[in-house]
Write a protein that binds this DNA or RNA. Sequence first.
RNA 1: UGGGACGUCGCCAAGUGGUAAGGCCCGGGGUUUUGAUCCCCGUAUUCGCAGGUUCGAAUCCUGCCGUCCCAGCCA
Length: 565
Amino acid sequence: MSDEAAPTPGNFIRHIIEDDIKANKHEGRVATRFPPEPNGYLHIGHAKSICLNFGVALDYSGSCNLRFDDTNPHKENIEFVESIQQDVRWLGYDWGDRLFYASDYFEQLYEAASELVQAGKAYVCDLTAEQTREYRGTLTEPGTPSPFRDRSVEENLDLLSRMRAGEFEDGVRVLRAKIDMASPNMNMRDPTLYRIRHGVIHHQTGESWCIYPMYDFTHPVSDALEGITHSLCTLEFADHRPLYDWVLDNVSVPCHPQQIEFSRLNLEYTVMSKRKLTELVDEGRVAGWDDPRMPTIAGLRRRGYTPESIRDFCTRIGVSKSENTVQMGMLENCIREDLNEHAPRRMAVIHPLKVVITNYPEGQVEQLDVANHPQDESLGKRTLAFTGELYIDREDFREEAPRKYKRLVSGGEVRLRNAYVIRCDEVIKDAHGEIIELHCSYDSATLGANPEGRKVKGVIHWVSAVHGVAAEVRLYDRLFTAPAPDSSKDGRDYKDFLNPDSLRTVTHCMVEPALAGAEAGERFQFEREGYFCVDPSPGEHATLVFNRVVTLRDSWAKIEQQQNP
RNA sequence: UGGGACGUCGCCAAGUGGUAAGGCCCGGGGUUUUGAUCCCCGUAUUCGCAGGUUCGAAUCCUGCCGUCCCAGCCA
């Protein structure tokens, strides 16, 4: 057991950075940035980027800026800029005093645009959006130059300043780079640099601007102004790199950062696009961005994932340029490993079945001393009350034992975890034949000792009926039923694969008394069930609510499945 | 049919001319008052395919095949 972080394995980006340091490129400096657009909550895919950018900065004594890419006020808002900061911080990263907004550079961006115009490298274009599309050509055919491409520098300068002054309506004109309408790279066919947007209140700049720069223009300039050395982004931006470099080569900036692309994370049984996650939230398919079924950082946090487990996950999946879809098991393994080591053990009965121990002295209560962790004494002990009436889980009793079943059966014996061995003598049913109670007898010689002359293989958990505390338990499962819900070949929408059983709420659970004062966000292992987290929602919960983070590995479930295919 | 990228075990992923790391999953065994944990052991004669260069190729060359991305006044 060790809390030492495993060394981060090398990847192609780290190799490039190490080579650059050796070659004294950028004076040996390393500066990265994490540049989210505040138009949604961060998800596990962003965590990969965050761990990469901040991790690299940490390991090479560099710095990593947090910069909001806020150039499209239509889609962005302050709730997102706040949640993003909270999530990055929660993941364990610190941007110090280097919190920036692309909008901090609007004035410099405008000057850079003027510079391009003056150099004859940008022009104001009056084509409509639709016309622009037609003029752009197709993947296989070159585009056609805009009729406004050869406007004079003077006219362009005048028009640009009047765009800024608000003289033109939305969509009437744009500023475009003058590059190459015949380029095989669509991004180089005179890309739009600025568009007009009236009537939106930007969360940072308010109403001071009515023209907004595009990503392809904003990003390289922002990177350069911040002295970024390595600008890491996902694969789909590889085609934009020539434009990124073009902008930096044609505008006066202090340095020329290097853009490097890596592949984004895909996770089985979920979706990762912001558009789809936004849809799930807006349409009420989930309870919000922090719904524990969401792959968002906020969702994982509420589910009970630890920041350590997410960071561990990010280092395990690595960084490469190949298209990948990581199995859920990988993420689950990371949280199991963390919680197995750190979570105190408790007993909780999710589907209670009453057990009466007929030979237990009436009214007697025994206080049992029990370890909080089977391997780690430093987690201490707690006391458990044992009584003649208790609850076990319905799953742990069968009238007829299936093959290899080693829990309680009629006439059979089982060990009550941390307590005695009991035998089931009688099954009490109601008028419908439903089992409502078990009458058992206990062997008083089996507390902390094996029974004489026989072996009892099964061990089940239990809660004293008089000391137990009522609780609600939320059992989560994967949000989608298909491994790749957003790429079905038969034209079905990702929402057609929503898992109807992704949340099962169980209301009348019984948990051991030590759980009574559990605080929001506290995590436990409910023995033989899984890891659970006290729901941290700022709550008006009348009773305790536990979210299931993840089940325990369950080899019995595998056996059972093989027996009843 | 243009351009960009990628193809190493079921899923990730090292490897950068010297004879296929590691993790997850999976299978088998052991310990265990959690069917958990932990501990052993096993799992690619082969790197998309086909040629070529070389004493030697996953690594170099050529050709082919497959997958992903690009035609927002989104990022």
